[in-house]
């Protein structure tokens, strides 16, 4: 074997990734989503006209990792900030990453009203069913019975209500043009130590479709069902199994609306 082997890059560096090491915990979907976002921006050739809005929570430093012009919004207000950018600069591709506490609790008004007006922006919701950044308190999306630092006996729905399904809330509005929910974590298969990566592939496609919807003038929303093993207090792989067992039935993945038919293209 003296001949020099030549390898051709199939997947490699993305101009939209800064390369800064992330603050995310090992195995976190926030990290996975960052790569997917970068890939979808670059696939569109949109790095120089994209604006990222990061929110408060684990996504607060998203602008450190995505090599884009960026604004960091106050807690829950990212949809308003995005809309404020897009209204004066409709030529820009404006998108944001929010957590479930940010979008579905403190910022529900901003999310619902931006959606209702059909603002041509793209919102990516990381729903890991807990407040991650603040240390594991109950979130609006916490499943019944889940132990958190503020529900030490498990979430009691009689007192704290049922988990809020943001995707279905938005589906009740005419404004949004594209609504999809993706199960982002690696998912257990029939073989005990093997997982599939379907969520990541679906997720990247969903982001591309969200961008396509935005550039056709519509509001797009993708909810990524995710995990938080550190605050759920389980191992990384057990968090993926829990998400598949408990969160996937609670927040069923799928395409909920595609007004422009962008997925059929």
């Amino acid at each position: 074997m003296s001949a020099v082997l030549r390898y051709e890059t199939k997947l490699g560096e993305l101009p939209t990734l800064t390369g800064t090491p992330t603050h995310y915990c090992a195995g976190c979907e926030h990290g996975t989503l960052t790569r997917l976002l970068a890939s979808a921006v670059d696939a569109r050739g949109a790095r120089e006209r994209a604006v990222l809005v990061s929110s408060v929570g684990c996504s607060v430093l998203a602008h450190e990792y995505l090599n884009l012009d960026a604004v960091q919004a106050p807690h829950g207000r990212a949809p308003a900030v995005m809309a404020g950018i897009k209204r004066v600069r409709p030529d820009l591709l404006v998108f944001g990453v929010q957590g479930d506490g940010d979008a579905v609790s403190i910022g529900l008004l901003e999310l619902m009203n931006a959606a209702n007006r059909g603002e041509p922006i793209s919102i990516f919701l990381v729903n890991n069913a807990i407040y991650g950044m603040t240390g594991g308190q109950m979130a609006p999306t916490t499943p019944p019975g889940m132990v958190t630092t503020t529900t030490p006996a498990g979430r009691d729905v009689a007192s704290t209500g049922r988990p809020i399904d943001a995707t279905k809330l938005l589906l009740g509005l005419e404004g949004p043009s594209y609504i999809r929910r993706v199960f982002l974590p690696v998912a257990p298969t029939s073989s005990p130590d093997t997982f599939n990566a379907r969520g990541a592939l679906e997720g990247e496609a969903a982001i591309r479709h969200a961008f396509e919807t935005q550039e056709r003038g519509g509001f797009s929303f993708v909810e990524f069902v995710s995990t938080c093993w550190v605050n759920w207090k389980v191992s990384i792989l057990e968090s993926k199994r829990y998400a598949a067992r408990v969160l996937a039935p609670l927040f069923p993945p799928g395409l909920y609306r595609d007004r422009f038919g962008v997925e059929g293209r």
Binding site: V71, R77, M82, G84, R87, V88, E110, N113
Partner: peptide, 27 residues
Amino acid sequence: FRVFLQAASELEAINLAIGSAATGART
């Protein structure tokens, strides 16, 4: 004068304004 919007709340109004101001627009 390219954008007029009645916001859903005072919070939304100031944050819409933050977004527009971030682009350098007179807001």
